[in-house]
């Protein structure tokens, strides 16, 4: 076995041009790739802003935010975004009423009561639930939940706010449950034990110690869940109908902002019409709503970050 002179071999390879070039090029390449995420945001803003701007040269901004009727397809159209916002609001309120108690309850159970074994079974189920496509949830709403509701309350029409609202709520349960559980689990065990050792029950510990300590994370999870509900599209497109209206009726057909976008784009919105541009004005409004919610969630998490 002849001996190789390793030091010499390494020395000879020292000035490898390609290694040096790669070393210089990689950070630049990666930065260019990273900038795509910025470009995406710019693209979204540019798309929404430019077309929305054109929309407001045709339809007055005042009408858009004050009128209560949305009749985009009419020969005498009216563009009052309130009607669509109202539709979104109905869905969001119902969804929140379902998702917050159920999600929080599940989070409390998983974090404070469940054994490791149960946690190992339940968490993947929640993950599967979170991974079910919204078109499947929509189908579930219209073919299962709606008939069920209509059987119990015959006055409810085929398209209504309750069924899609409940299903949107179920859809965001996994998100609220897992984020809230994360927040509660990160409360240190010593805090928990301190309360339990005084003779407090699990329940009292949860409400007096754990929930206050994890409040910021839990509230952030609610806000993110609501943001998701605002942006949810397929469930409402399938099960909520397409009748925008600024009323409080939960039992008849309605339309959300997302539902409107889908309705217009599944047909042929001729390029350059008011209808076409209204798509972007609605998209912009929707974007603003979700952006505010997301920023709020980030702000809450950062501002009230618990230091353990």
């Amino acid at each position: 076995m002849n001996e190789y002179n390793i030091r010499e071999m390494i020395q000879n390879n020292k000035n490898n041009k390609s290694t040096k070039f790669i070393e210089k090029a990689v950070p630049t390449i990666l930065f260019i790739i990273t900038s795509v995420s910025i470009l995406t945001t710019i693209g979204i803003l540019y798309t929404l802003l430019s077309e929305t701007f054109i929309f407001f040269t045709r339809v007055s901004f005042i009408e858009f935010i004050t009128a209560t009727e949305w009749k985009a397809f009419s020969s005498n159209p009216s563009f009052g975004i309130i009607a669509l916002i109202m539709g979104t609001l109905k869905i969001v309120v119902i969804a929140t009423m379902v998702a917050v108690p159920v999600g929080l309850g599940a989070a409390i159970y998983l974090s404070e009561y469940a054994t490791d074994r149960i946690r190992r079974i339940v968490k993947p189920i929640l993950e599967i639930l979170a991974g079910i496509p919204t078109v499947v949830y929509g189908t579930f709403a219209i073919t299962f939940v709606t008939p069920l509701i209509r059987e119990m309350f015959p006055g409810v029409s085929l398209y209504n706010a309750i069924s899609p609202g409940v299903v949107v709520g179920i859809m965001i349960v996994p998100m609220i449950a897992s984020l809230s559980e994360d927040a509660m689990s990160s409360v240190p065990g010593t805090t928990r034990e301190g309360s339990l050792a005084l003779g407090a029950t699990r329940l009292e510990t949860v409400f007096k110690v754990i929930l206050p300590a994890a409040a910021s994370g839990i509230i952030a999870s609610f806000v993110l869940g609501i943001s998701r509900a605002i942006g949810e599209t397929m469930i409402v497109s399938i099960a909520a109908g397409s009748t925008p209206g600024a009323d409080f009726d939960l039992t008849s057909s309605l339309q959300t902002m997302t539902g409107f976008i889908v309705q217009v784009t599944s047909g042929d919105a001729a390029f350059g019409t008011d209808l076409y541009y209204s798509l972007y004005a609605v998209g912009m409004t929707l974007f603003l709503f979700t952006l505010i919610m997301n920023l709020a969630a980030q702000w809450i998490t950062k501002k009230f970050k618990e230091e353990y």
Binding site: I38, I44, G231, T233, I261, L286, F287, T290, Q298
Partner: peptide, 19 residues
């Protein structure tokens, strides 16, 4: 960039459709 990415994660898919 980091904040921007977490905001992109919250943009509704239908808005990506418009993009």
């Amino acid at each position: 960039i980091t904040v921007n990415i977490s905001n992109l994660a919250g943009v509704p898919s239908v808005v990506f459709g418009l993009l």
